[in-house]
Simulated scan of single mutants.
Amino acid sequence: MHLSGRTLFISDLHLDESRPEMAAAFEGFLSKEARSADALYILGDLFEFWAGDDSLALPFQARMADALRDTAARIPTAFMHGNRDFLVNGPFSRETGVRMLDDPSQVDLYGTRAVLLHGDTLCTDDTEYQAFRAKVRDREWQRATLSRPLAERVALAKSYREGSEAAKRGKSMEIMDVAPAAVEKAFADSGCDLMIHGHTHRPARHVHRVGGRECIRWVLSDWYDRGSYLEATPSGLRAVTL
């Protein structure tokens, strides 16, 4: 396998058949920018919603799975759950060849250890969202939900999405952003000096002082207006817009 010295990170694509231009941008990214990378990490919210792995039978989801399968056959590709696609599971992984990634996870980036997260666990001031997250990540809740017919689950997922958007309109941006104490704890728990996450849709490079050391936090961009990825090389990291 060719190693290019490039590892790529994306998140918050929110792919949906109602946004065909972003689906096409994702397919283009996989066939071009990601083609010769060492690895690709998808840090959650790849899909606008995911109603269960039997969604792979639906045309749009099957098309995205085909694109991922082709990429995963060429380079190691990993997926982490987001707050929209938390029902992605083993069948999706087996069908696409994409490895499931725990949240948080650590990875070696050319000699630098990095902690990877979706990012929602850092938003601890949003207690309403954290309660919702705990509910939908519960195994019994997921088992009961997945026992429903697919069409019913799709409708339920869409209602959750609409409820989420309505709830966000009533919250301040500060509440929905990461809590500094949660970020510092994540750095301390991991022992890493580098963190990469998405979720907040506030792409930036942040510098933190944790335990007397300088730590860097990269926030990935969403794909609502155009595609973007974070590229790690032996020389460092940079955000790239498609």
Rank of each mutant, 00 (worst) to 15 (best):
T96I: 05
G97P: 03
V98K: 13
R99C: 05
R99E: 13
M100N: 00
D103P: 12
D103C: 09
P104M: 01
Q106N: 07
V107G: 05
D108F: 06
D108N: 14
L109M: 08
Y110R: 01
G111L: 05
G111M: 02
G111C: 03
T112I: 08
R113T: 03
R113Y: 01
A114S: 10
V115G: 02
G119N: 07
G119W: 08
D120A: 07
L122P: 04
C123T: 08
C123L: 02
T124D: 02
D125F: 01
D126I: 05
E128A: 13
Y129D: 08
R133Q: 11
K135Q: 14
V136C: 03
R139L: 14
E140P: 09
E140S: 13
E140F: 12
Q142H: 02
R143Y: 09
A144L: 15
T145V: 12
L146P: 11
L146E: 12
L146Q: 12
L146I: 09
R148L: 13
L150G: 06
L150V: 00
E152K: 09
E152C: 04
E152V: 11
V154A: 01
A155T: 14
A155H: 06
A157W: 09
A157T: 10
Y160K: 12
E162V: 08
G163F: 08
E165P: 00
A166F: 10
A167L: 09
R169G: 15
S172G: 15
S172Y: 05
D177I: 04
